[in-house]
Design a protein around this nucleic acid. Sequence first.
DNA 1: TCTTGTTAATTAATATGTGAAATAATCATA
DNA 2: TATGATTATTTCACATATTAATTAACAAGA
Lengths: 154, 154
Amino acid sequence: MPAFRETLPMILNVTLDGVMPVYRELFARHALTEQQWRILRVLWAEGAVTTTHLSRQTLLPAPSLVGILDRLEKRGLVTRQRSDHDRRKVHVTATDAGLTLHSQVMPALERIHAAVTNAINPAEWQAMQDALAKITNTISDQTLDDLLAEPETT
Amino acid sequence: MPAFRETLPMILNVTLDGVMPVYRELFARHALTEQQWRILRVLWAEGAVTTTHLSRQTLLPAPSLVGILDRLEKRGLVTRQRSDHDRRKVHVTATDAGLTLHSQVMPALERIHAAVTNAINPAEWQAMQDALAKITNTISDQTLDDLLAEPETT
DNA sequence: TCTTGTTAATTAATATGTGAAATAATCATA
DNA sequence: TATGATTATTTCACATATTAATTAACAAGA
């Protein structure tokens, strides 16, 4: 067993703690939280989407979406509308104000992303992405009892 | 600019969303939250530590620690004591119950960690860790204005 | 000693995460 | 077509995150 800091959750959280402040500073300049930004970004790319779809794309839990969308709607950045075909569903759309805001943030966001990706070379980036995807695919569909039942591999 | 899902924050969050549920299931079996576990893990390794130190090691924000430690203390897993030399400081220590709990969780935690690391080979693991560390070191000490002032590198 | 600056911990206000349960609408089918 | 199963969203209760502002204690210097 490695040191606490060498475990995957801490490796990932240390990285997030290192990079997110600069993203948050950008969002804060437009009075947006990170989560609000994620939602706008999906709406901008996909138009009207259902709450469930939004939850999956943004990784934001459905119960959290309720409040986040409330606040975005109150600020006039998004609108919600019940589906006519399936009245269980709610369609979320960005308003013009929401779309405008998006285009104001993108240039700076691209600068941040460039700085992040340029910290390593493209091959390293791809390898990192592949490694994390491989881990996710291996673990995400397993339950704790699955893992505890497996014979030791190390 | 890549797709939303190809950006670093989302890559990291997708991975965390994929692996954390199995960790949380383990912690839940001992009535612990992930944050409470982080604290116990540090206390087990280091003995009595100050709140600030605990915040740095666990990545938990100091304001959050107040409540988390309150609940751990109420359950008799940790104790808090003002420092005599510097009465601003508070020393946190795990009780015997806290230490016992730790040894009960470790075996299963090692199984999870083994499954995670075995998803990729050691070289890939090291490369992933190095890549993320390099990104963190490059970005974490920069402010947004620093990044926006830099000439385009891409 | 008084002032000024700094550090450690906490409080406050707001936003979000997590897990379980509730609600309402749709679906499958006997 | 009534009924049980499923889906989409929301509510609830509790725990944590984020940022700014306090409070108390220490530290250095006029």
